[in-house]
Structure formats: C-alpha cells, structure tokens
Nucleic acid binder design. Structure first.
Lengths: 327, 327
DNA sequence: ACACAATGTGGTATCGGTTACATATTTCAT
DNA sequence: ATGAAATATGTAACCGATACCACATTGTGT
C-alpha cells in the first residue's frame, strides 16, 4: 500500500501539498496538481481512512443501531441506509441492540471509540442515554428520542386512522385493535389513531395488546376471538401481528375477508406473500431509511437541516384481507 | 476522551508501560500495574481503536459482504455473524453487493482500506477477484470460492435429495424441480441432488429455472403448470420460489397438498407464515453464520482451523404443503 | 562473588495522515 | 515602483496508539 509520502516523493512535492490536493483545502499550483495526479494514478494510491480518522477524529463510518435485523421491518430499512451511505461514500456498521439498554450503551461506546461520523438509532429508551453531550450527530429513526434530536418517523396516527376508517368503510361493525408493546411510542400512537376514529362512530370496539411477533400474536388473538366471535374487523398495529391474526382466524375456520377483515401496519414484504395477501398501512420503509441517512449525512457535512424532523405519510395498500366493496 | 498519555501521567509511568499493560505484552511490575489500573478506572479510559489500528494495521472490524439484506435469507445470517462478532469483541460492517462485481470490488477496497480484521463473503464470483494475494482472512459463506479459502455451506446435494425423496415418499409421481439461477453454485448442486434421486426412480420429472424472487417465480411456475397440469409435486430450490409456486398453484385453483405438494429449500421465516405453511429443507442459517464468523475469528486470532471447510446438514421440516401420509 | 538471565521501565520512532505556521513567489492596485 | 493581498509550498507538530531498543534492577546458579 503506497502512502502519502510515496506520492509526495514521486510527485516531487511535500506531503502537505498532497494533502491539500486530496482535501481540496488551501492552494495547490497547476504543476503540482498535475504531478500529484499522475503519481496517484501511477501508484494506485488510496488515502488510509484510518490515518485520516486518527488525525481528524472522524471516520466515514455510520453506526446503525436497530433492535434486530431479523425483525422483518429492518432489513429494508438497513438497506436504505446502506444504499444512501454508499452513495455518499460512507460505510455502515450494523448493531443489533435487542432493545437492551446495556447493549445499546455498549454500542454507543464502541462506535464513538471508532470515531464514527454519526449514528442512526432506533431505540425505545427516550431518556436513558444522554445524547446531548455526545458531540456526534444522531438521527432517531422510527421512534422519537429527545426533543432536540432530529427524527424520522411515519405518521402513525394518520396511518391508524386510515386503517380504521377503511375497515369501517368496508362494512366492519365490530372492531378489534391489536396494539403493540406499550413501551413503544409508535404503538401508542397507532392505538390513539384507532381511538380517534372510533369515538366519532357508533360501533363496537376492543383494544388488546400483543408483542410484535407472529406466534405470540397468533395465540393471543386466537384466544380473544374464541370468546368474542362477533368481531368482524381487525386492525393490527403491525404486520407481524396481522399475520398472526390471519393464522388465528384460519384456525377458527373463519373466512377472510368474508367473515372478518384484517388490516395490518408496516408494509413488510411478507404481507404480499401470505394468503390471502394482507391489506396494510404501508410505511415507506425505504424512504424512511433514506431520509434518516440523508439527514444524518447533512448534519455530518455541516449542511443545514431544513427540518429537524421528518414525518412520512403512510399509504393504505388494499390487498385481499379486506372486502372489495362495502357489504 | 482521555488518552494513554493521560493514564501514564496519572499512574506515573511511561506510555510504553501502559501499552504493555493493556496488551499484556512484556513485563509490568506489580506496583505499576496497580497504579495503571487505578488511573484507568479514574479516567474512564478506553484505548482508541483508531490509533491502535493505525499502529497495528488491524482493526476489530469484520466486513460482511452479502448480495442483499432484503433477501429473506440474509437477515438471520447477518444476525448470527453479528452476534458472534459481538461475543468476541468485533464489530460488523454490512455491505450489499447486489451480486455486482464492481460493487463487490469496491467494498473489498473500502474494507481493506479500513484495515478490517477479516471478511465474510457471499459471492457468485468464484474467480474474479484475486483473493489469494489479499493478506487478510476471508471466509466464503453459502457459496464456495476458490479452493484454498475456508468455506461454510449447507450440504446442498443432501438437502435436495431429502426433499425429492420426501415428495416421492408422500406419493408424488410427477415432479417439477424449480432451480435457481445457473450462476449460483448452490443452485446447481440442488438440481444435481434432485437428479440423483430421480434417476433411481421411474417417475416423470421436469426441471425449470427461475430467479430467486417471488414474483418472477410465480409467473414462471404459473405458466409452466398451466401447460403441464399433471405435475403433482414441486421441489423448489429456494423458499422464495416455493412461495411463488404456492401462489401460482392457488391461482390455478389447485389444492395444496391434495392436488400438488410443494417442498422448498432454505428455511426462511416466511415459510412458517404462508398458508398452508411451507414444508422445506431448512438450512440452519444461524449456525451457518455463526460457523463462518467463528472460523474467521479463529483465523484472525491465529488459532488453528481444524477444518478448512464446514458443511452443515440441512433438515427437512414437514409442514402443510406436503401430505401427512402416503397416498 | 560474578556472570548471565529474567524482570521492569522509559525513550522514541513509527503508523499515515492533517494542519498551523513560516516562507517564497506572483499579482495587482495605486 | 512598491507594499499589500493572493497564491504556492514546505517544515514539523500532532492525532493515540505500538514496539523496538537501551538501560536498570533483581534473581540465580556455580
């Protein structure tokens, strides 16, 4: 691996001049410029990121802390972040926090110790870590953190309203809302959206809580429906629980969407693939990740942020778990 | 952030002694040791990874290059790698190559430039890059590279045989094998396994090729089945195409598993979730990733590799797309 | 008691860049 | 013509570690 000194020697200039050339900082004369360009080409020189980081205390690495890449929501998000990072010349370190505060803190430690340029964080701990005295840029993704930290989220209330209203429009008269874990802000907001629509209506409604995973959701919903068979519409606050609901409903020999309609939330791939395919309020996951990455990079590069927070509109995707027409 | 000099000053020793202490290299007297420990605690000192990397030309970062984290096979793999890396004090950079040689090369460049400790690679390019003259450890995952590079794969032939034999045992008499892209070695091997079982039998069989994605697979299989309705068993070389097959079969109003049975390959989450749930040859994806990470770390840390390649047995998971008993 | 090994410690060059500062040359308005 | 400003370039300190080498001290076998 050639170093900056090799280039300097070959181009018969000093390392300072080469450095100035590389970073486009300060003056570099035409002759030097040409000689340096030639030398770089000849040597196949690439500046050492590590040395540069040591000097500037900033690398071209972005940390991405998410609960679990296995959770079907996150691969697409990660992909969007990585694509955007790639485009701007950054590289992504992936961290699975498991919603575990200790692990999260550990990653923060590790990442800052690597002089990462910034961190994108999906965390349920809105207060725990003290993000303010951290001097590196942070963007909160999917779940808001403290007030002054830039945030990218989907408009959860709007999405929940969309789903609920849609079920009603399609003729549902007795609605079940399957909320997510209470600790997660977005889950609360989705339930809130559901409530807001319901209170203007005169239909029966129930709200239950379930973690965001298929199996548990399936069990919980199965049990619920067994004792409350009158329910004819389910709004699940995540596609995972919606899919659990779908399985539960199947087991109960109810037909979807004839006997009971289901609308999920998230828009994960899997929704397309289940039978019947899932009507859902899709978050534009890719856009979410992209927006977060862009905001972070803007901060890193000192560009002004036009918005301190971005709220992306969800979109209802009508598939097969809801009726085609009002009955 | 305190530095090693701060520690040295506080402990009234030289930086060399502190360094020796930190790396457990060379002699450090008892008194110095205690003073240093105290100083480190007092200052909350953590050695700078970046400075260390510059000096040693090795970081604690592992590069993971995969085609696409959105592909449902990879999140679990990535998770396994990350978990194992975490356990041993390493950190993972995620790279999506899109099976694109240029992108792959670029990532190699970027990663080596960061002095990564090693790279785990899922690549279809078995010759392109010259891995030999690379001085950092590499492990090939899922798809073998050149001969002398440690490799972790599933026993694809065995898995394909398992699936094919199972279909036959369950009474299928006219088999369709849906292979993956020909460029992918594992796909070839799975087709080979299928062939091996078939040639000992006297049943009809067909082989078609399809990319590993739902939509395309669905279309291709739909068209095929339309003109060949006698097929009563499908072995799909990936769960993705198996799920495509499932949808295609549904559209054709054939019942699964009564009219036609389906067995997939991979064991992705989604298989559990489709209806009917997918019988499949499951790779132990987590174990795959874990084994790869461990092999890599062993290489990095100079420990001997007992095996230059690991081949993990797949396991047939019987679910609902095959019949319960032989008909 | 002496030679030699083992133990303990510090000085400092080095990794490969950045950047403040000094210095030299050119440009240009007056 | 001349002094200030702009342009161009080099020297060397610095980022925060590692590691080679020199040197001092202690232990030990004969």
């Amino acid at each position: 691996m050639p170093t900056i000194s090799d280039v300097a020697r070959l181009a018969k200039v000093s390392v300072a001049t080469v450095s100035r050339f590389l970073n486009d900082s300060g003056y570099v004369g035409k002759k030097s410029r040409e000689a340096i360009e030639k030398a770089i080409k000849e040597l196949d020189y690439i500046p050492s990121e590590v040395a540069r980081s040591l000097s500037t205390k900033q690398s071209d690495i972005i940390g991405l802390i998410i609960p679990d890449i296995k959770n079907p929501f996150f691969p697409e998000l990660a992909r969007a972040v990585e694509d955007t990072a790639f485009e701007y010349g950054y590289t992504v370190i992936l961290c699975n926090s498991d919603e575990n505060e200790l692990k999260e803190k550990h990653y923060f430690q590790t990442l800052t110790n690597k002089y990462v340029a910034g961190i994108i964080l999906t965390s349920i701990f809105d207060q725990g870590t003290n993000f303010k005295n951290l001097k590196i840029p942070i963007v909160a993704l999917d779940r808001p953190l403290e007030i002054d930290i830039p945030t990218v989220t989907t408009n959860n209330i709007e999405g929940a309203k969309l789903a609920t209203q849609f079920l009603i429009d399609k003729g549902a008269t007795s609605l079940l809302c399957v909320g997510g874990p209470n600790a997660i802000r977005s889950s609360k907001l989705r339930i809130e959206g559901f409530r807001e629509v319901i209170k203007e209506q005169t239909i029966k409604s129930y709200i239950i809580e379930s973690p965001y995973d298929f199996e548990t959701a399936e069990t919980i919903i199965f049990d619920y429906l067994k004792s409350n068979p009158s329910v004819d519409g389910i709004f699940a606050c995540s596609d995972a629980s919606a899919i659990g609901a779908l399985k539960a409903v199947h087991k109960l020999n109810m037909r979807v969407p004839e006997d009971i309609q289901i609308v999920g939330f998230d828009g994960i791939q899997m929704g397309k693939v289940v039978s019947p395919s899932l009507t859902t309020v899709a978050q534009n996951i890719y856009q979410l990740g992209q927006a977060a990455a862009k905001m972070l990079i803007n901060q890193i590069e000192g560009k002004p942020l036009e918005n301190t927070s971005v709220c992306i509109h969800p979109k209802l995707i009508e598939r097969e778990t809801t009726r085609k027409e009002r009955t």
